[in-house]
C-alpha cells in the first residue's frame, strides 16, 4: 500500500492506494499524522481497492486516539467495496464521510477553527 501525505488549508490529507489489510494496516497506524492525537486528518480512500477488518480496525483505532474522533479523521471518496466493509460493522456511524476530498478538507478546517 502506498501512503501519500499532502496538506491543504492547514489539514493533512493522507491518501491511500492499494490494499488495506493486515499486512498494510500497521503502516497506516504508524503514519505520523494519523498517529498524532492532535492532528486532524482527511483520509482519502479513493484508490483503496480492498479493505478488510484489519484496515477498518486501524482507521477506527486511530480515530479513537484523536482528541475529537469524529473530526480527527474525516473520510473521503470511499468506493462501494470499502463502504460495504464499513456498513457490515456499522462503523460508518463513527465518521464523517465525504465523496470529495476538497469538501472533506473544508469541513475539517471549519471544525478545527471552531475548536480553537
Amino acid at each position: 500500500m502506498i501512503i501519500t501525505e499532502t496538506s491543504a488549508n492547514g489539514i493533512v490529507i493522507v491518501a491511500l492506494e492499494g490494499r488495506l489489510d493486515a499486512l498494510s494496516a500497521p503502516k497506516l497506524r504508524g503514519s505520523p499524522p494519523v498517529a498524532d492525537p492532535k492532528t486532524a486528518v482527511v483520509l482519502d480512500l479513493e484508490k483503496v481497492d480492498f479493505m478488510d477488518s484489519s484496515g477498518l480496525g486501524a482507521i477506527v483505532g486511530a480515530a479513537r486516539e484523536k482528541g475529537d474522533p469524529a473530526c480527527g479523521i474525516v473520510l473521503s471518496c470511499m468506493n462501494n467495496k470499502v463502504r460495504r466493509t464499513f456498513e457490515t460493522t456499522n462503523a460508518q456511524r463513527l465518521f464523517h464521510i465525504f465523496d470529495d476530498t476538497s469538501a472533506a478538507v473544508d469541513f475539517a478546517a471549519t471544525r478545527q477553527i471552531a475548536r480553537t
Binding site: F98, D99, S102, A103, F107
Partner: peptide, 8 residues
C-alpha cells in the same frame, strides 16, 4: 454538511 458530503 449534507451537501458538502455529496459535493462530487
Amino acid at each position: 454538511t449534507m451537501l458538502g458530503k455529496n459535493r462530487r
